[in-house]
Design a protein around this nucleic acid. Structure first.
Lengths: 210, 210
DNA sequence: GTCTATAGAAGGATAGAC
DNA sequence: GTCTATCCTTCTATAGAC
């Protein structure tokens, strides 16, 4: 339950990488309780003894893998789109591009699966909740807030608390569609629904802060 | 896995009610995988044989209990506040009262625990996702939408798609605080934070739809 | 209906050979 | 490091007595 959390390295043994990959797929898809160490060993093509030679417990393996999944930047990659030259002065276009990228990412099956696992196990594994929060909302605020301030200084947006505005933008994006998808309810979101949700979110945001 | 789902009745045997109560507390607090039938029997003060006499499988017991928890109206009780006479003509006050009631309810430890369990298990138990969605967002739309239409007809709100507006109001309420609480991250939300979140949500909503 | 006792399977973790 | 084989615990579910 307490040991060193080694991140993944290219120098890691092939077996270790096999274990990490197999366990990640299983844990992310099925959660902690539904996956056995037997199943992981089988999927990784190693014996259970080898598995335990690399990870001293199931808890440690789980925390390592899901923590790493959270740190693989849920949102960071999309924030750079705010720096796109053509969009700097067109607030609505910038928000729409950002919103589309973010919502598509949030609705990917892998993102949803990580969300389900983290929400389910964050009580027993508090470090997972912290990692998810830090790499999701917190990171978004850190990048989006300054951009909002910049736009406000340029007179293209009303001055407001940037953290609140950032949270509300995410909240608007996650309205409606997201919960349905997180619960796995059919029908799966269509690209048209995603676009409509983003448009509605940007409309509301611009009316409030434009 | 498939059997008749009997709801709770006053005519039910005391043992059955003991089982339902004990199992509900355990499942809601710890989820499906972490709770054993042994633990439920112990907490209910009955033997495992008695437990199985009432519920033919762990799956059935789990689905019965969580489904019932979803149908115990997560939101319905608060929608009546919209009919409060004094608030009919004061849109901002009505939204603030509604928002406070809803957000406080959503942040209760029991509501959060149900959310965690449903999100975690809705893939394996699709009926739970449906029950949660139907008794949460869908029911809210059904009550909030007509109220919005009414306000629009009275000229106190701008005409807009009531479903979208209802979803966005929930989205604004759940921005920031809610995810942190769902992940169990300290510090626990204070009443001041709740009030500030509601005020900010109503502000944004009124700027967009007022 | 309710209990004690237990079957039968699967779980996490380890010993010892190579 | 890696394997096979196995230990011990815990799990779901049931048989049989009252």
């Amino acid at each position: 339950m307490s040991a060193t959390l080694k991140p993944r390295h290219e120098t890691d043994s092939p077996k270790r990488l096999q274990i990490l990959d197999a366990a990640a797929n299983l844990f992310i898809a099925q959660g902690y309780g539904a996956v056995s160490m037997d199943a992981i060993a089988r999927a990784a093509g190693v014996s259970k003894a080898t598995l335990y030679a690399h990870f001293t417990s199931k808890d440690l393996l789980f925390a390592t893998i899901i923590g790493e999944a959270c740190r693989e930047n849920l949102m960071g990659q999309w924030l750079t789109s705010l720096e796109d030259g053509a969009l700097v002065t067109d607030v609505r276009a910038a928000l729409t591009a950002l919103g589309l990228g973010l919502l598509r990412l949030l609705l990917e099956e892998r993102s949803l699966a990580i969300y389900r696992v983290v929400v389910a196990e964050s009580v027993r594994f508090p470090e997972l909740g912290r990692a998810f929060h830090e790499n999701g909302p917190v990171q978004f605020r850190r990048a989006f807030g300054p951009w909002l301030d910049e736009q406000a200084k340029a007179g293209r947006l009303r001055a407001a608390d940037p953290d609140v505005a950032a949270d509300q933008f995410i909240g608007l994006l996650r309205s409606g569609l997201y919960l349905r998808a997180a619960l796995g309810l059919p029908p799966a979101p269509t690209e048209a629904e995603i676009a409509a949700t983003v448009t509605a979110a940007v409309d509301t945001f611009m009316r409030a802060f434009g």
